[in-house]
């Protein structure tokens, strides 16, 4: 099949979790990162956004909750346009886990950090505590609630970063390079956590085996546009496509042998 299928449907009775159309953006220093990006995610999908370094992945992520606003084009979250009028609502619905947990964990203790988002949304008292505990339990970090984040291991910090976002009960979870700098055990633990969640997941990565393990569908972003959209095993089996966009499977890894991803 032709892997280049960029054809987002524009009318749908159930709104997409995420719908991006015609998105272009340049930084103030003149560097243009996005050149017209189109794609849409159904509710509950787990999708990998693959691409080489400098493809514009992180720039795209920053558009999803309105931190950057489009030069041209639009982003809609659960049918809501990402604009100034809907910013609070959008930021509550889109949870972004950034690449460096040190950037995300800025409060003195884990508990305060996880409470930060829901408290900004107006939660207080017992309700807030319950929300924090639940989020920490989902990532297996409930026992570390009162420790300062910088005393945790890197893998633990990444899990707490996921919890800080889960505590906001988002509609869609966006992870920027979730497997980077993780040792194999932490990597597996994070995969187990992610597969146990029932939210839409957009995972931005160049870790192809991780994408195959977690995401049935993948998009390839290269040169600031989506150049491929399809089932992950098929995309990863297309050697020409991968090579053309500087994506490489680890030595000895075969997407066919690895089998279909767990759904």
């Amino acid at each position: 099949m032709d892997p280049v299928t960029t054809d987002p449907v524009t009318t749908n009775p159930v709104p997409y979790s995420l719908e991006v159309s015609g998105l272009a953006f340049a930084y103030p220093d003149g560097h243009q990162a996005l050149f017209g990006v189109d794609f849409a995610l159904e509710r509950g999908e787990r999708v990998a956004l693959l691409g080489p370094n400098g493809a514009g992945k992180t720039t795209l992520v920053l558009h999803l909750n309105g931190i950057l606003t489009a030069g041209t084009g639009s982003v809609r979250v659960a049918g809501l346009p990402v604009d100034r009028a809907h910013m609070a609502e959008v930021r509550q619905r889109v949870g972004i886990v950034f690449q460096d947990p040190d950037d995300q964990l800025f409060m003195p203790t884990v508990r305060e950090d996880v409470a930060f988002g829901p408290a900004n949304a107006g939660l207080r008292g017992a309700e807030l505590d319950a929300r924090v505990t639940r989020a920490l339990e989902r990532v297996g970090m409930a026992g570390h609630a009162d420790r300062p984040p910088h005393h945790l291991s890197f893998g633990q910090r990444r899990r707490v970063a996921v919890a800080t976002v889960l505590a906001m009960e988002p509609e869609i979870l966006v992870l920027d390079e979730p497997s980077s700098n993780l040792d194999p055990a932490s990597r597996r633990e994070l995969a187990e956590i992610l597969t146990s969640l029932d939210v839409t997941v957009l995972m931005v990565t160049h870790d192809l085996p991780y994408a195959l393990e977690l995401c049935p569908r993948s998009l390839i972003l290269s040169g600031g546009t989506v150049v491929a959209d399809g089932p992950t095993p098929e995309l990863l089996a297309d050697g020409t496509l991968l090579r053309a966009h500087r994506l490489e499977l680890p030595f000895g890894f075969s997407p066919r042998r690895a089998g279909p991803p767990a759904l």
Partner: peptide, 10 residues
Amino acid sequence: LARPLKLKVN
């Protein structure tokens, strides 16, 4: 010293 911006779309 910043320069003016141009966007290239498709």
